Simulated assay, not measured.
Amino acid sequence: MEEKYIQKIAETEQRAKSNTHRLDKLEENNKLMMKLCSSVELLAQKQEQAMEQIQDLKADVVSIKETPKKRYDLIVTTIITVVVTALVTAFVTGVFK
Rank of each mutant, 00 (worst) to 15 (best):
E52M: 11
R15Q: 12
M51G: 14
S38Y: 06
L32D: 11
K35T: 06
T20Y: 13
N30A: 04
E52A: 10
A16R: 08
R15M: 02
I9D: 10
N19K: 11
K17C: 07
S38V: 03
E41I: 01
L42N: 14
Q47H: 12
N29F: 04
V40P: 02
K35Y: 04
L42Y: 10
L32W: 00
L42R: 10
M51N: 15
I9C: 06
I9Y: 03
I9N: 05
I54S: 13
H21S: 13
N19R: 09
M33I: 08
S39Y: 05
V40N: 02
Q55I: 01
C37A: 14
R15S: 04
T12K: 07
T12L: 10
E28W: 00
Q49F: 06
A50F: 05
Q53V: 03
L36H: 12
L26A: 10
L42F: 02
Q49W: 02
H21P: 01
N29P: 01
V40Y: 01
H21Y: 08
M51T: 12
E27Y: 04
T20G: 14
L32T: 08
K25I: 06
K46H: 06
R22V: 03
A16E: 09
A10F: 05
L43D: 15
A50M: 02
A16H: 10
A16F: 13
H21L: 03
C37Q: 14
Q55L: 02
Q47G: 11
L23Y: 02
V40K: 11
D24N: 09
Q55T: 04
Q14P: 00
K31A: 03
H21W: 05
T12H: 07
K31V: 03
E28K: 03
L43W: 08
L26F: 04
L42T: 09
Q49S: 08
S39A: 12
K35D: 11
L23P: 07
K35S: 10
R22G: 04
N30I: 03
M51Q: 15
A44M: 15
E28V: 00
E28G: 00
K35P: 01
N19H: 04
L43S: 14
T12C: 06
Q14L: 13
L32H: 14
T20R: 11
M33F: 11
K35Q: 12
L32C: 10
M51H: 13
E11P: 00
K46S: 07
M51I: 12
E27N: 06
M33P: 09
K25W: 06
E27T: 03
A16K: 09
I9T: 09
M34R: 14
C37G: 14
E52W: 06
T12G: 11
E27G: 02
Q55V: 02
E13S: 04
K46F: 09
